[in-house]
Every structure is written in structure tokens, then in C-alpha cells.
Simulated scan of single mutants.
Amino acid sequence: MIPTIDLAAWRGGDTTIAATVDEALQKAGFLLVTGHGVDAALRAELRDAARRFFALPLEVKQRYAVRIGGRGWLAPGVEANGQVEGVETPPDLKESFAIGPETPTGDPTVDDVWFPPNVWPAEVPQLHAVAARYLAAMTAVSLELLAVCSTALGLPRAELAALASHPTWTFNINRYPPMTEVGEPEPGQFRIGPHTDFGTVTVLDREPGAGGLQVDIEGLGWVDAPYDPDALTINIGDLLAHWTGLRWRSGRHRVLPPQAGAPTEELMSLVFFFELDHDALVTPLQPPIGRRADLDPVVSAPFLKERLDAISVG
């Protein structure tokens, strides 16, 4: 259903991986990836720093509060991912800390939306340095994944990454509080409601749990996502699916609400949403690679902005 691929084997010339990737992204839009080279100690160090931030008093965290698209603390109640599917849902049961690229273009109309300055909490000074190391690793993994995807589509290896020379991206550290903190979920309320991501590849480092990640797989419906502590979970987003002429499926997923059988369960996910240059023109691949010949080209920034606006509450 959701296979595991070894990036080290791909680097070594394993020719079977391209077909595995193509099949998985057609059916589920998800993969597990090992051989990525991201040190487990770095992942643990970042979680530790993030937990120190989330444990701060509410009045301290509010100094760093932003809305979706901003850099800083996203409080509980500001986001409802299920709304991107056109369904009114209660807010997601989570809080997040958002970070973005520190590579402004010099154009205020672009930078205010896609490259605003990051906000680093003075109370947790180690967060900045460890996040910088982690994000450098995530960028490298994402570019390598685009190379894998190019190969899986039968394109030159550098084809997809050519539109990501000055990429936008968002990194969210998501904390999913326990039921003992948030209370009984409302009907239709999730830690993250059913949705697809918006960009090219999402690189997820997650923790398993009773109220964890589920994936919507063609022909099967909702299934628990497989977990491997050494692997990163990868899914593709709407922009890459569009680029493939809908050959590949934007990975639909959700994070279950806290469960009554595990009322003290708290989870934390490190979620890196990789995107293209803000002005990248994405022209869908035509058949026989693409499945559709009637899709229009799109520009990355407005394509993403429409979806971000849809999930904002209030």
C-alpha cells in the first residue's frame, strides 16, 4: 500500500525504485523513505526545543502569535484543514510553530507574503540554531525527492527541481495536545481534518499514536499510516499532482482526534512543506505521462495562496 524506498539505494543506482515510486504516488500519494541521512539525534534535539516553547505560559506564547502564513506561534483554533475540501469543520486540535525561508527577494509585495521574517522566542534560544540545521537537511532531502520523482516520471533528473532555485517552503512544528487538556472533541473535529497538502513534497517526521496519521488509499479508504522510527513519511501535494497531469494523487490524509483510550497522549510532528519558486509557472505534463490533456498551467504563489486562505479560521 505505502512502500518504503531507500534513498541510499537510489543513489547507488537501484533501478527498481522509480517504478515503486510511480505506483505508490498513483495509488496513495505517500511513501516512507529511509537512507535520508537526517540524524535521529537532530530530530530529537529539535523536538526537545519545541517542547520547551510549547510549555511556556499562554501569555508568553501570545507574544509570538500569528495567523496562517505568518512566522511564529499558531494558537489552537486558527486553522481548520478540512475546510480546504469545502466542508465546514471545527478548528483543528493542535498548536504550531511556523518557520519559513530567510531568503527575501527584495520585492515587498512578494516578501510580505512568502518571505516574512522568522520570529525566534527569546525564552528558548536553542530553537533557532537547531531548527536551522534541521531545515538545511529538509531542503536537501526535498530536492533529492524531486530528483527521484523526475526519474519516476521518465524525465531528466533535474527537471522538477529546476523550478525550485529560490523556493518557498513552510516548516510547522505541530503539537497535538492530549484529551486531558482539550476535552472531548466536537463531532467532526480532528487533530488535523481531512485534506491534501498544497505544494510539491511534504517531508514528515512523526510520532505514532492512537490519535495518529491516517491516509486515504484508492480502493481501501482510510488506513493507519505505517510507521518506522528510522523513516521519514513523504506525501505529494496538489501542485505536484497538477504538474503530473493528475497521474499522481495528492496524498489525502488526516490526523485522528485524541482517543478516549489514550487520554494523556501528546504527539509532536515536524512537517516540512516544500514548494517551488513563488513565480514558477507549472505546465501540466501531457499524455502519455499525464492523465489529462485539459489542465491549464498555474503559477505557484496564487495556487498555494488560495488554499492557505481556505483553511484559515476567522
Results as ranks from 00 to 15, higher is better:
6 D>P: 04
8 A>T: 10
10 W>F: 10
13 G>Q: 02
14 D>L: 06
18 A>S: 14
18 A>T: 11
23 E>G: 11
27 K>S: 15
31 L>A: 07
31 L>D: 05
35 G>W: 01
40 A>P: 11
41 A>S: 14
43 R>T: 15
50 A>Y: 00
51 R>G: 11
56 L>N: 13
59 E>Y: 00
61 K>P: 09
69 G>F: 00
78 V>M: 06
79 E>V: 08
81 N>I: 08
96 S>G: 11
96 S>V: 04
96 S>E: 06
104 P>G: 07
116 P>T: 02
120 W>L: 04
131 A>V: 01
136 A>G: 14
147 A>D: 15
157 R>G: 12
165 S>E: 14
171 F>T: 03
178 P>Q: 05
182 V>M: 10
184 E>H: 03
189 Q>D: 06
191 R>I: 00
193 G>V: 01
198 F>H: 05
213 L>R: 04
217 I>E: 12
220 L>V: 05
223 V>T: 12
225 A>W: 02
226 P>M: 02
226 P>I: 03
229 P>N: 12
230 D>Y: 03
238 D>L: 01
245 G>V: 00
251 G>T: 09
252 R>C: 15
254 R>K: 07
259 Q>P: 09
263 P>L: 00
265 E>D: 10
277 D>Q: 10
278 H>V: 09
280 A>Y: 02
281 L>W: 07
283 T>I: 13
289 I>A: 09
293 A>K: 12
293 A>Q: 06
298 V>C: 01
310 A>V: 02
310 A>N: 06
312 S>R: 15
313 V>E: 04
